[in-house]
Design a protein around this nucleic acid. Structure first.
Lengths: 222, 222
DNA sequence: GGCCTTGTTATGCAAGTGTATAAATAGCCT
DNA sequence: AGGCTATTTATACACTTGCATAACAAGGCC
């Protein structure tokens, strides 16, 4: 599509800038995620991605062996970002284990983790995990990492309450809490406008504390 | 392109049987779901679907205006089947509300609802809900129907315990329980072999009863 | 400034896509 | 049994897709 009203030679070769390698790869990956989120895997063609990245399709092959690899790298980048953000909420200094757990739940049930675009991406990719071992492994690792984090905090919380759960108990708590967070995350991503701000987090904290058998805090302590 | 050296008529027209209309549509929808589950939306081409259904691609156009409509009908059929199965566990005569709730949780966390194929389908379609209003509405309706069922049972359970929750309390319980079931469902579908049989259901029941503040039953009562 | 490397564009191609249309035949009706 | 009709197959087509290759020019280097 040449620009119609242009005095300069119509079939002039497109101007371009040379970006650094890392920058270009990053841009291409981001454009890929955008395209997948918006149009799905089928709509994310090399041309669409290139258009979004502001380059022409051929360039992609300069940075990636093929489309498959681009998609895999994009997915890896996505899960990396997700788990990183999620875990970031756990590094609170001088906070009680219980507060850290609550903060963790809250962080996972608000923006930017509750986000329709990220959810769309997650669902699109995870739907292929059943038949794509690469995706399956990427997910498995992310999931187990997340659950281990949960299990660690749970152990701290219970220890602070003088309770000594055995390994299986701990595992079950982690699985359940993980499920609560995942389930609420999905609900929030898919139908965010059905919940008032902070409502999901409040529901999540109450559910998690009930699961652990923690006695509700008094109003003024919160 | 006639085959020159062949005595028998190589290019004989393929034999076929005429199936009833409803049967054919059903077969085509099933073949579509199979194809999507196995190859994803991009891999589910008309030819792939037709091959799986044992017909040729052209026939699809005889039953559906286009691929788009076929996919939508397939998704509608899927969510219909899912919610139907889920709710079926609730129609237990002469069982206490608490037993019915437990049965509901158990049913949702075992085969055939815990199923990698169904999950793959769900994820693939739901990933497009963000940009496809038709899919979004189909999901929304299924989700709300499910949550209303949950809310109804929860109300019965609490009533049986002489507790009178207000509307908001009830809603929050339903949202949390829905999340627990969804989250465990995902974990089971994605990594079923990580859990022993019945383990997810046990975790789910405990979590749900904790959420509702039900006191654990004594061993011999279970 | 003029070259040289290589990031980038442009063009081409074979395979596959959804859709349209024509040809055939299965199976019901009389 | 034989014709009719609508289901089904077969073929064609325009278009898109991922990938390959050639032409080009941006920007560092001397």
């Amino acid at each position: 599509m040449p620009d119609a009203a242009d005095p300069a030679p119509m079939n002039a070769r497109r101007k371009f800038r040379r970006e650094g390698e890392e920058r270009r790869r990053q841009d291409l990956i981001e454009a890929t995620l955008d395209s997948v989120a918006e149009y799905g895997l089928q709509g994310a063609t090399l041309r669409t991605i290139a258009l979004r990245a502001g380059v022409t399709a051929g360039l992609i092959r300069h940075y990636f062996p093929g489309k498959e690899e681009l998609l895999q790298e994009a997915y890896t980048a996505l899960v990396g970002r997700m788990t990183e953000q999620a875990k970031a909420a756990l590094v609170m200094e001088d906070a009680s284990p219980r507060q850290r757990l609550a903060a963790f739940v809250t962080a996972n049930l608000n923006a930017p983790i509750i986000d329709a675009r990220v959810f769309s991406l997650w669902a699109t990719f995870i739907g292929r995990a059943g038949s794509d071992p690469t995706l399956a492994r990427a997910h498995r690792e992310g999931y187990l990492g997340f659950r281990n984090e949960v299990e660690a905090v749970v152990a701290e919380v219970l220890a602070a309450e003088q309770r000594k759960p055995d390994a299986n108990e701990l595992r079950h708590h982690a699985i359940a809490i993980n499920a609560i967070i995942d389930g609420l995350w999905i609900e929030g991503c898919l139908a965010g406008e059905m919940f008032s701000p902070g409502e999901l987090a409040a529901i999540g904290i109450k559910a998690v504390e009930a699961e652990l058998g923690l006695v509700p805090e008094r109003e003024e302590d919160q």
